[in-house]
Each structure stands twice: as C-alpha cells, then as structure tokens.
Design a binder for these strands. Structure first.
Lengths: 306, 306
DNA sequence: CGAGTGTGATACCTTTCCGGTATGAGCTGC
DNA sequence: GCAGCTCATACCGGAAAGGTATCACACTCG
C-alpha cells in the first residue's frame, strides 16, 4: 500500500464516480480503476460497490475513508514538521553557559525572545564552566556553549564566535580611599592589591589588563585568584583587594563594593558562542543570530546610558 | 512522497547505516540511497548527515522520524479498520423493528449479545411499523428491519428471511366464562366476539386463524380491529372480545386478562429479518446470524418450559 | 605514510509497474 | 431494443524502482 492508493481512494470516495475522480486526479480512468482494484486486493475486501450510476462505499470503504484521510494528513504533517525543523522553527536546543551570560543580560533577553517568537523550540539550560562545557560537547549533552574563551585544546573541534563585549570596571571596597574618587587613572593603582580571575578563564581580558598596567609602568600585585565574577566581588567586599570585573556585575549592588571606570583601561570582557565544528543546526543558528541582535541592543543602550 | 519513502527512511534512521538498512529492507544499498535522496529533495532538506562511520539524523530528520512512524502506523490502522469492517467486527447498524421483536425477547437478547461480543459496533434502534420500515429503507435510514411481514409491494426490492416463530394463544377477559377452563378447543369459540389485528400486519397468521376456524365450521365474528399486540390485550381487558395473540405477550400479565392455549390451533406468529436486496453488509449478516441463534435458543427453552 | 577497509554515491542496466489509448460488458431509460 | 453512461479489461510505452559494478572519500593500522 502506498499513499498514492490512499489519495486515489479518497478521490473516488468523494466523487463516488471513477470518471470524475480520475479527472480530478489528472489521470485517465482505467489506471485509476486498476489502482483501486490493487488496493482492494491488498486489503482483502471490496471498498466500493459498483452500482449502475457510479459506485458506493461498502462498509469496509466507509470505515477506511476517515482513516485514509488521517493517514494523508499525518504524512503532510510529517513533511511540514521536517521543514519547520530545517528552518529552525521547532526543535530542541541544549545550552551550556557561564555565569556572565546571565548577569550581562544577554541570556535572559534571548530566552524571552525565544519564548515569545518561537514557543515550539524546547530549550534546556545548564550553567557550566568552560571545562564542563567542553566535556558536555564531547558527550553530546549540549548543542551550544556560551563562555568567554574555550579551553586551549578545544579550539580544534569547537567553532568560536564572539557575540558580545562589555567594558571592564574596577571593583573597590567601599571603605577604600579610592572609593571616593569619581574617576580613576590606571597609573594610580600601582601600589594596590588585586584579586584576579585565572588567566585561562578569559585570556584576552587578562592579557589586556596586564599589558595596560605594564604600559603604566607597574605589574599588578595579585594576592588571590578566584573563579566567578560574583566571588571576585565578594572578595573585594571583604577587603582582600581590588578587582577588574565586567561592568554588568555592578548592577547587582554587592554590599560594601563600589565600581569605578578606569581611564586608560580600554579592555573588554567578551562572550562567545561555541559549538562543534561541522554540525549544522538551524535552531542553534537562530539562537546565535538572536544573541547577536540582543548583544547589539545591549551595547547601544549601554552607550546611550553612558 | 510515498509510504515506501517513509518505510525506507525509518529503516535508515533506526540502523543509522545504509547498508544494514538495505539488508533489512531486502533491497540493495544504491536504490535505497536514491530513494532517500529523492525524499530529501521533495521535503527540501537533508534528513541525514553523512558521517565517516555511517549517517546521523539532522534536526529535520529527528523531527521527521516520529511523524513518519505515526504515518506508517496510521496507514496500518486504516487497513485493519477496513478489514475489521469487512468481517463485521466494527461499523454501524440501524435497525427498525416492530413491537413484537421486543416482547418476544429476540431483540433484547441480540442486543446484549452484541454489547458483550462486538462492543465496537454501533447500533441504532427505531421502533417502526412495517410501512414506516419500508419508507426508512427507501430513504436509506435503516439497514435492517424486523417485522412479521413486509408491505405487499415491497417484497420486490426487500429480501425477507424468517428467523423466529412462536405459538398463538387466546387472550380472554378474566371475568369471561372461558377463563376458568385450562384448555380450550377452537370449536367452542364459534359464538364468541373477537378483536383482531389487520390482515396486512401478519397475513400468514391471519389466514391461518381464519382457515382453522372455517375448518371447525364457523367464521369468527370480528367486532374490532386494532394495531399492536398490547393494544389488543387491553381491548380484551376492557371486555370488547377475545383475541389471538403471540404467546410471549402473556408474560406481561396485563390486568384482567388470562391467556389459554387452544387445541387444534397450530398457527404461529412469525418474525422476519428484512433488508434491501443486493446490499452486502457484514454487520447486518452477523446481526441476522445472532438473531437466528437467539431464536433457536428461545424456541428450545419455550418447548422445555411447556 | 601508504595500503586496506568500510561507507555512501554514481553510472548504467534490467525489470516492474504506472498511466495512456482503445475497446468491451453491463445496466438504465427512453 | 437501442443509445448512453459507467466501470472493467487488454495492451502498449515510458517512468521509475531495483540490481550490479565501481568510484570517492575517510578513517585505521601496520
């Protein structure tokens, strides 16, 4: 049995007339008769009763008709379903992301965009550090990662696309003498203590900061390293030292910490989307596109506020 | 798109290997590759990603797989549905019947049989007199009739199959002098008044009664005609006269009426199944078969009780 | 690094079967 | 009883499915 048989059967059942049905199907009447005969033979029972002025449905045909229609409709649904998935309008996306994707605002905004415009896409979210993301990719547990920078050896099989960057500011304990100044220069920080993130988390930002300090004639004294921007902020709050952090952290208003822009520090924190090389996924492409759009809007509104 | 494409697609999606899928499908690998390619072209997107060690499903393929399975399952269900209808295991039957079908017990028993053994058959029941049944057949409102005897002109296009017969007894007002006798002879009824059903309702029974009376040397004095066995019984109860009725009526115990067998009155009331000539309906055939079985059981138990 | 193996794709041929044309058989209605 | 309508049958040509041989590519392993 093929869908052709069902299409022909439905046409005859609707016209109750082989000639008209054949016309509607754009074929001649004899081949139609033969296809129906073949279908009846395969099912093992007559579907039509041949009567003088055309045909009638037998009880078997009457039972078959709605089921045949359902089958044809289901076949069409299958086709449309594949096409929608190919266009990225449906499907499932598993996203691993670092903490900064949340507080930069990019992830929440993309999520609300997807919920509003593409509700039939299922999203699974996992907060994972870069190393965990690399593992998750290898195990096939996620389709997209959001991080600052992938583990060094992972660049070979991961495609990395920068999507967002935001300025770096200095986090200062409220009681610190520098907290009062509205604007600081980098050169004035030569004698301070710093808490810093591990270089591998965001090498570009790390190297940029070190290079700018060198240019000002000093090497920052790092008294502690720590993972996670919020952790860094709480160390600052505890008075351990100053910290360079992405500006969006400042919106969280950690008690005992103030944030200041630093003149001469044109360094940015970046966020990139990463995925397995050579893996095509329309949903992921849509997600990355949405991320870029959201990133653009965020950057513009930040500049406007400045 | 044809079901063949779906069958092939599902096989490849399950094996993730063209060679093994082809083997399972009992075809060679190249034609399978081509069918899949044709399917992908028709849908407009790749369903498989060709990778070194076989193939993987693309997002479109992943979305397509369950829908394709549903389509194939639905096609099978359609086929089975037609086959079940052809065997009379499913479908709908509209039955018109005269009152006697109910009180003879044959209709209630067939109904309970159907509900127990063939629950997926929908039954629609209409109490209709023979004339109404003939009209309902012509309008296509019923598929089966149960009556004593069809209208005269209807025998040409109706098939009539006797399925049941039961003895005729005499209904007598309780106060009547004959009510006391255990057994009556027909000859002793020559001077009585009778209420009788119209001849066309059941000509065989009518003629049989008249002929038996003639043989006993009298012609029954009919003081009133009436339709419906219960109506007849209530006229008897009112003292209008005696009435010949089917024995099963006696089980209703109409107040003021007693029923007596009459010696020499070997006449029966018959019930027949009727349907449009040349119309094949497996459900109707099953119903008639069930009616015959029930009728046999009823006759045996009645004889046993006698 | 090169031969070997396994995979799907391509080329080409054979066979099946779908669709077309011509015609027949059966019933209806004038 | 004959015209007219309807579906079935017979037969033919061509599209398309399936088979065989072979290629291209990539990974593997010595």
């Amino acid at each position: 049995m093929e869908l052709r048989h069902l299409r022909y059967f439905v046409a005859v059942a609707e016209e109750l007339h082989f000639g008209r049905a054949a016309e509607r199907l754009r074929i001649a009447q004899p081949p139609l008769s033969r296809q129906i005969r073949d279908l009846e033979r395969e099912i093992g029972t007559a579907l039509f009763a041949r009567v003088p002025r055309g045909v009638e449905l037998t009880p078997a045909g009457t039972a078959f008709l709605p089921e045949a229609r359902l089958t044809l409709a289901q076949a069409e649904r299958a086709q449309r379903s594949a096409q929608r998935a190919a266009k990225g309008e449906t499907g499932r996306l598993r996203v691993g992301f670092v903490e900064a994707a949340t507080h930069s605002g990019i992830l929440p905004d993309v999520l609300s965009f997807f919920r509003a415009h593409l509700p039939s896409i299922g999203l699974s979210l996992f907060e994972l550090d870069p190393l965990q993301q690399a593992e998750a990719f290898q195990d096939g547990r996620i389709d997209l990662g959001i991080l600052h920078s992938p583990p060094l050896d992972a660049e070979r099989w991961l495609r990395v696309e920068p999507v967002y960057a935001e300025p770096v500011v200095l986090a200062i304990p409220k009681s610190h003498r520098l907290g009062g100044r509205a604007r600081l220069s980098l050169g004035g920080l030569a004698d301070e203590s710093f808490v810093l993130f591990p270089r591998h988390v965001e090498p570009a930002m790390y190297d940029g900061i070190i290079a700018r300090c060198r240019a000002e004639g000093f090497s920052p004294r790092v008294v502690q390293e720590a993972n996670g921007w919020h952790t860094l902020a709480s160390l600052v709050s505890a008075g351990v030292g100053l910290a360079f952090v992405p500006r969006s952290i400042s919106s969280f208003q950690q008690a005992g910490v103030v944030y200041r822009a630093v003149r001469d520090l044109d360094v940015e924190m970046s966020l990139s989307a990463v995925w397995k090389r050579g893996e095509r996924s329309p949903v992921r492409e849509r997600f990355v596109t949405a991320m870029r759009a959201v990133a653009g809007k965020l950057s513009r509104s930040a500049r406007g506020a400045k």
